[in-house]
Design a protein around this nucleic acid. Sequence first.
DNA 1: GCGACAG
DNA 2: ATCTTGTCGC
Length: 222
Amino acid sequence: MPVQHRWDLMPAQAIALQKELAGQVDTTTPINLNHLKLVAGVDVSVKNNISHAAVVVMSYPEFEILEAVTATMPTKFPYIPGLLSFREGEVILEAHKQLQLTPDVYIFDGMGIAHPRRLGIAAHMGLWLDRPTVGCGKTHLYGKYTEPAAERGSMSPLTVQHKEHTEIIGMVLRTRPNVKPVYISPGNHATVESAVELILRCTSRYRLPEPIRAAHNTAGQF
DNA sequence: GCGACAG
DNA sequence: ATCTTGTCGC
């Protein structure tokens, strides 16, 4: 079931909402990588307190841009680690409203469930859209891990230690040999394994997946 | 109390 | 994220 709520919240309220929504995220249904046709990249750039969001849909496996939508609005929420979706969520949805195509999966610049309250921007937006989403961050936010090997495809689990067991919330993945790894975690309707496979399939010459690069360019060239 | 801390 | 030129390396 899709989720909706207001965005003008105070940090304490936002945190309470995250705790409430986290339990609704589905991380047991794998992304259907066999019928993958449309992959979307989502990104936001901020300039002079104005947020610019971009959602770019690419064909798979050609990675040709089929559709690109954008939205602009004042940046109301400050950047607070752990509350990124409350800063970028509203503009992203504004841009998304204009989308004609229905992507099979969305890749976000940031975390999925690899988050202090298991609700990074990819998980949060995945609940709102009720669609498969994956988080692909450039730096670490949450979870313990060891450095993965230098070869492309090498990975090490992002874990959180519980009482008696170790939960895997994502993977630190090397998408290019001898290049800094990316932090992958499932958003909604995705598993850790399918999320990793998707990112590897969307990466070739660069560290970041093509859809994210395209979205970053579109959002940034304002 | 101290360190960590997506974009 | 954003401020910013050249430069080291495959």
